Simulated scan of single mutants.
Amino acid sequence: MTSVQAAPFPWSDVWGQEAAVQTLRQASADPASMSHAWLITGPPGSGRSTLAYAFAAALIADGPDDEATMRQVLAGTHPDVTALRTDKVIITIKEARALVERSYFAPSAGRYRVIVVEDADRMVERTSNVLLKALEEPPEKTVWLLCAPSEADLLPTIRSRVRALRLREPDVADVARLISLRSGVDEATAEQAARHAQRHIGMAQRLAVDEQARSRREQSLRAVLGVRGVGTAVEVAGLIIQAATDDAKALTAERDAAERAALLRTVGIAEGQAVPPAVRSQVSALEDDQKKRATRSLRDGIDRVLTDLQSMYRDVVMLQYGRGDHLINTELRDELAALADAWPVQRTILVLDAIADTRESLERNVAPLLAIESLLVTISSGRTP
């Protein structure tokens, strides 16, 4: 088990990444250790973005005692930080060009200008090429921080122009301890959330505090275990899509309403007042962005269900090989043990391959309902359709 110790500010929210923090602390203090572009990679929930913003704060501040500047950076209000956080399916060329243009501005108040791209893996090839020149010939005081799950998610031309920093995957005990400290939930709930989230800190936090999210997860897994043919496959696929849709709406509805209210306040329109024609284009643009974000949120929700299914059938394989000591879904041990006895291991591996193929198909815009139906038919029959 790895001990979880908080580093000095602004690194105090980065947990379980002592080696990475040490590397970036040294770089922020010693120009000889600096690079003009960094690629921070690690599994979902490992803290890539948290680490990137802590690094940005240390770079921009005038030394480790300049806490006021660092807090401004972490709050997202410092003029020398430009961040791209996308809730949409891809990062657009327009967004990339705006970042490049911003990167050529000299720092206005801090030591550096920092450009943070939280989901660099959501750039298609044409968009990535927009960044190349800025990465090849960066201004002296500009630093790029790209975040992605792995180096393979970016083009080789991008990878060759950045310094890569790989984060470690935290232990379940580390994540559980962090979640318990942050949310105040009991140790058992925190441990279960960390285990079910497969050490993804953000998802573990949500499972720990949201009983409905925990319930939807359990219902989805048990429903899949109950699939016995094409008829139930179609029915359960519909339930999974509906659950993912409800999950996405729960995550986005409150934020959408707050954004709309903030926009209307900015242009001086009171709540309930009709939107004048001059402002409708701004409202329409906001609604378009929210629709794109809803699409991404739904895809992410379906992908979370598939990730949970992978964990379940991974447990089956572990049991089939006599390794029942590190199960993710211990609450389903009896059902999974029965499945492990009933199936040959080759069938379980086929199911795991089918889940991976389904995740890739959804990234290629295959209709979600059809993709899930096909997957469940494979699970119930042991054969690909």
Rank of each mutant, 00 (worst) to 15 (best):
A32K: 15
R111P: 08
L84H: 05
T157I: 09
D334Q: 13
L336T: 08
I91N: 05
A278R: 13
A258H: 06
T82I: 13
T384V: 15
I179R: 07
N129P: 05
R199W: 11
R161M: 04
V185M: 13
A109K: 11
P31S: 00
A250W: 03
D300C: 05
T142R: 01
R97G: 10
D80S: 01
I60G: 09
P344H: 10
H200S: 07
R216M: 11
D300Q: 09
L251A: 15
I355P: 12
R299N: 11
S108H: 15
A371W: 11
S28W: 09
G47S: 10
K249Y: 05
D353T: 10
E118I: 00
R217I: 04
T307H: 15
P156C: 11
P43V: 11
T252Y: 06
G272W: 07
L251C: 04
D186A: 04
A274Q: 11
Q282A: 13
N129A: 05
Q219M: 02
I372A: 11
L239Y: 01
A213Y: 07
L99S: 03
L251I: 03
T189M: 02
L225Q: 06
D87C: 00
C147D: 06
A338K: 14
A190V: 02
E95T: 00
R71L: 10
R113N: 04
P8I: 08
T127L: 01
